[in-house]
């Protein structure tokens, strides 16, 4: 179901909401698990020079949940993100995204590009918006590239921008936006193909406290509304207390712990 078929927060009738709840229930059954990683390993090189960047990673993120992933530099955060993003191939283990096993001692999906396009959304430390496209087309680009009609893709993008309160800047160029607005547009871009998983790499690093919490608030709302499992890699002390669950990664191993889950609504 496309976003244009599915109303967003702030613009719904009662019937729409009932419809959405029905959809979420159906979707949840399909996506029993947003992200599930079991014994993931990643080794760079071979022989004496081999480096185990990931030694044993277990992780589960439910649909609609936002979890934090924290750890010191060199702990394996980026490697884990690259494995989850289907950018590099793990060396061993099992990885399931949106209920579908994509890696089990080898890629199960041959077209990784399509996997990234359809099932994984990315939010980066810097927004990395395409500087020569306006806000609307930055968000609409992905469905356009997937072959959706331009009008439909733009309509879907506009609805997301409205949900993220940046629709009034839809015709602005990225360079005309503030840092917070750019990051919201980047989130909209990550959500536009309605992926079951979003990987956010230090999304609040360049923002002040208020804007950083605003971004986390949006990610939480979007996770609930779109039934998306979100992993936020961060060092940002401002936002760490907002997570209900946190994965610590150290020396290539993950350890789960409960977070403070501080309210930010």
């Amino acid at each position: 179901m496309s976003i244009s078929e599915r109303p967003l927060a702030g613009a719904r009738s009662g019937e729409d909401l009932r419809s959405q709840h029905t959809h979420v229930a159906q979707s949840a059954s399909k996506r029993a698990v947003g992200i599930h990683i079991d014994g993931l390993r990643k080794r760079y090189g071979s022989g004496d020079t081999a480096v185990d960047a990931l030694k044993h990673v277990d992780m589960t993120v439910a649909p609609g949940e936002v979890v934090g992933l924290i750890g010191p530099s060199g702990s394996g955060k980026s490697t884990l993100l690259k494995c989850l993003g289907a950018v590099i191939e793990p060396s061993a283990g099992r990885m399931t995204l949106g209920g579908e096993t994509i890696y089990d001692e080898g890629w199960k999906i041959r077209d990784l590009r399509a996997l990234r396009r359809d099932r994984i959304g990315f939010v980066f430390q810097a927004p990395y918006l395409i500087p020569f496209l306006d806000v609307l087309d930055n968000v609409a680009l992905l469905p356009m590239l997937a072959g959706r009609p331009n009008a439909e893709a733009r309509q879907r993008a506009l609805e997301l921008l409205e949900a993220l309160d940046v629709a009034h800047r839809s015709r602005a160029m990225p360079s005309q936006l503030s840092g917070g607005e750019q990051q919201r547009v980047a989130i909209a871009r990550a959500l536009v193909s309605r992926p079951p998983v979003i990987l956010a790499d230090e999304p609040t690093a360049p923002l002040d406290s208020e804007r950083a919490l605003g971004v986390i608030r949006i990610l939480n709302r979007m996770a609930r509304e779109f039934d998306t499992a979100i992993i936020v890699v961060t060092h940002d002390e401002k936002i760490i207390p907002t997570f209900r669950r946190i994965y610590h990664i150290r020396d290539g191993r993950t350890h789960e712990e409960a977070g403070e889950g501080r309210s930010i609504e």
């Binding site: 996997l115 990234r116 396009r117 990395y128 395409i130 871009r189």
Partner: peptide, 15 residues
């Protein structure tokens, strides 16, 4: 950087 982002989000090489 933009090309890397385009490739990461699933843009075809031919595009």
């Amino acid at each position: 950087r933009e090309i890397a982002v385009l490739k990461l989000i699933g843009t075809r090489n031919r595009t």
